[in-house]
Amino acid sequence: MTSLGKWSPWRDRSWPRVAAAILLLAAAVVWATIRGLHSYALSPVGIGYDLDQPPVVLALVGGWIFYRSRRP
C-alpha cells in the first residue's frame, strides 16, 4: 500500500473544528445562492470589494477554522 493510501483528510484534524468549518462554508454557499450570484463582481477589483460581503466573510471564517483544526 502506498503512503497515499493511508492519507486521510480527517485523521490529523480535530473534528469539532472541521464540522464548524463545513457548516460555515455551507451557510456561505446557501446565503450567496439565495442572494443571487449576479450580485458579485468578477473583476479583480470587484472581488476585492466583495470580500466584506456577509457570505464571503462566512466562507473566509470557515477556511480559517479549518486551517486551525490541526491536532496539537
Binding site: 480535530s14 469539532p16 473544528r17 466584506d52 466573510v57 462566512l58 471564517v61 480559517w64 477554522i65 486551525r68
Partner: peptide
C-alpha cells in the same frame, strides 16, 4: 455596516478558536 460585517467575522473567528475544543492525539480536549 461594512465595519460590522468584517469585525463580526473577526469576532466569529476568534471565539471559534477560543471555545471550540481541539481534540488532541490522545483524544483529550485541549
Amino acid at each position: 455596516a461594512r465595519g460590522h460585517w468584517i469585525l463580526g467575522a473577526l469576532f466569529l473567528a476568534i471565539i471559534l478558536d477560543e471555545y471550540l475544543p481541539l481534540i488532541g492525539r490522545d483524544d483529550q480536549p485541549a
